[in-house]
C-alpha cells in the first residue's frame, strides 16, 4: 500500500552548490579593521582631537590678529585671558593663543617628519636585512645592536650639543636613533613572514621578488608598521618638547610647547596660570590623542583579535 502523499517527506529540491555557499560575506582586513576602529570611541576621540589640533595649528596663527614674536613690553605683559588675548599674554607681552598654535605646528611637523623618515630608513634597512637574510642580515643587525645600546634621549642630547639647536637638527637627531625600532620591527616581520607557508606557496607557484614584496610581505607587515608609526609620533613630539624645555630645541623667538612651559616655570610661584596651562594642556592633549588613537589602531589591526 502506498503511504499517503505528504509533501514534508519529499526529497528537498536544492541547488547542487547550496552547501558550498559561503554564508557570511568575507570582510577584508582593512574594512574589518576600520569597522573595529570606528566602534572604539576612545580611538575615535583621539582621531578627532588630532584633526582638530592639526586644523587649529594651520589656521590658528592666521585667524589671530597677533604675530607669535610680536612683543608688547609696555602695556601687554602677563595679561589674563580676555576677549582680546584669548589665552592671555606672556612676560614679553606676546599673545599665548598664537604661540600655542605656532608650537602646535612645530610639534606636529616634527612628529610627522620624524615618523616618516623613521619609516623610510627602517623599511629599507630592515627590509633588506630581513629579505636577504644570512650574512647580510647578521652584519646589518650587529650594527643596529651597537646603536641599540645607546640611551635614546642621551644620544639625542649629545647630537644636539654637537650640531647646535634648531628644528632641522632636532629632526636629524631624533631620526638618527629613532629608525632602529622600525628597522628591527620590519626585519622581524619580514623574517617571520618569509617562513610562512603562504609565502612558500607563492614562491612555489613562481611569484617573483616584486610580487612577493608587494603582494605578500608588505601588506602583511603593514599592521605592525602602522602601529609603530602612530606610536613614534607622540614619542617625537615628547622628545622635541623635552629638548626645547632643556634649551636644546628650537630657539627664541620661535614658540614651542617645550620652551613655553620652560619659560612659564616661574609662574608656579607668581601665579600667571595661563602661561603654563595652555601649552601644557595642548602638549598633553596631543600626546593623549596620538596614544589613544595608536592603542585603538593596534587593537583594530591585531589579527589575533579578529572574531
Amino acid at each position: 500500500m502506498e503511504p499517503a502523499f505528504n509533501p514534508r517527506f519529499q526529497p528537498a529540491v536544492r541547488s547542487r552548490n547550496a552547501s558550498e555557499k559561503i554564508k557570511r560575506p568575507p570582510a577584508g582586513y582593512w574594512k574589518d579593521a576600520w569597522r573595529r576602529l570606528r566602534k572604539n570611541w576612545l580611538a575615535m576621540t583621539g582621531l578627532v582631537l588630532i584633526l582638530l589640533i592639526a586644523l587649529m595649528s594651520v589656521i590658528g596663527p592666521w585667524i589671530s590678529p597677533y604675530d607669535y614674536s610680536e612683543q608688547n613690553l609696555r602695556t601687554g605683559k602677563n595679561l589674563e585671558p580676555s576677549a582680546e588675548h584669548w589665552f592671555g599674554t606672556d612676560d614679553l607681552g606676546r599673545d599665548v593663543f598664537v604661540r600655542v598654535w605656532e608650537g602646535g605646528r612645530i610639534s606636529l611637523t616634527i612628529g610627522l617628519l620624524a615618523a616618516l623618515i623613521d619609516l623610510c630608513i627602517g623599511v629599507i634597512y630592515g627590509g633588506i636585512a630581513g629579505y636577504r637574510g644570512g650574512r647580510t642580515d647578521e652584519i646589518m643587525m650587529r650594527m643596529v645592536d651597537v646603536l641599540w645600546g645607546l640611551p635614546y634621549l642621551l644620544t639625542v642630547i649629545l647630537l644636539l650639543v654637537v650640531m647646535g639647536p634648531g628644528l632641522g637638527t632636532i629632526i636629524v637627531a631624533l631620526t638618527v636613533t629613532g629608525w632602529l625600532h622600525m628597522a628591527r620591527l620590519v626585519r622581524g616581520q619580514v623574517l617571520q613572514l618569509k617562513e610562512q607557508e603562504f609565502v612558500l606557496a607563492a614562491v612555489t607557484l613562481g611569484a617573483g621578488t616584486k610580487r612577493l614584496l608587494f603582494k605578500h610581505l608588505i601588506p602583511n607587515a603593514m599592521g605592525p608598521i602602522i602601529i609603530m608609526l602612530t606610536l613614534t609620533v607622540p614619542q617625537a613630539i615628547f622628545a622635541e618638547a623635552f629638548l626645547s624645555f632643556l634649551g636644546l630645541g628650537v630657539q627664541a623667538p620661535v614658540a614651542s610647547w617645550g620652551t613655553m612651559i620652560n619659560d612659564a616655570l616661574i609662574t608656579v610661584l607668581s601665579g600667571e596660570w595661563w602661561r603654563l596651562f595652555f601649552p601644557a594642556l595642548f602638549l598633553s592633549l596631543t600626546m593623549l590623542a596620538f596614544n589613544a588613537f595608536g592603542d585603538g589602531l593596534r587593537d583594530a589591526l591585531d589579527p589575533k583579535m579578529r572574531k
Binding site: 509533501p7 514534508r8 517527506f9 519529499q10 526529497p11 528537498a12 536544492r14 547550496a18 552547501s19 558550498e20 554564508k23 557570511r24
Partner: peptide
Amino acid sequence: PGSPPDLFDPPPGCPFADRCPYAMN
C-alpha cells in the same frame, strides 16, 4: 560535500540537511 552550518545563524531544521543526500522538505 559542503561545510558545517554557520552557528551565528543556524538553520531551523536539521543542521546536516544542507549536506545530506537524503534531505527532505
